[in-house]
């Protein structure tokens, strides 16, 4: 799966959890906090995306994520089996 396809999944889930966010405002360099996500929103976006991608990632690995690009990279690496 490409990074673009993974980003599309993450974006879908951001809009599901934060329906008030403008889709155009969601870009790779943004963090979930910048998009208005609270602590529970952030976990939900990650979990719904992992479910959609059929990924199971130790939660500790999510702690280093600074923005959406990091999140997409993390998912991409796991999907490639790294």
């Amino acid at each position: 799966m490409t990074r673009d396809a993974i980003f599309a999944v993450v974006k879908d889930n951001i809009l599901k959890v934060l329906p008030e966010v403008c889709p155009a405002a969601i870009s790779l360099e943004k963090s979930l906090v910048e998009l208005g996500a609270n602590s529970v929103d952030r976990v939900e976006v990650a979990m719904y995306s992992m479910e959609a991608l059929k990924l199971k990632i130790p939660r500790i690995e999510l702690h280093g994520v600074r923005n959406l690009a990091d999140l997409v990279d993390l998912f991409h690496a796991h999907l490639r089996g790294e």
Partner: peptide, 9 residues
């Protein structure tokens, strides 16, 4: 693995 995290609250 995929339970709703807001359940905790």
């Amino acid at each position: 693995e995929y339970i709703n995290p807001s359940y905790a609250l």
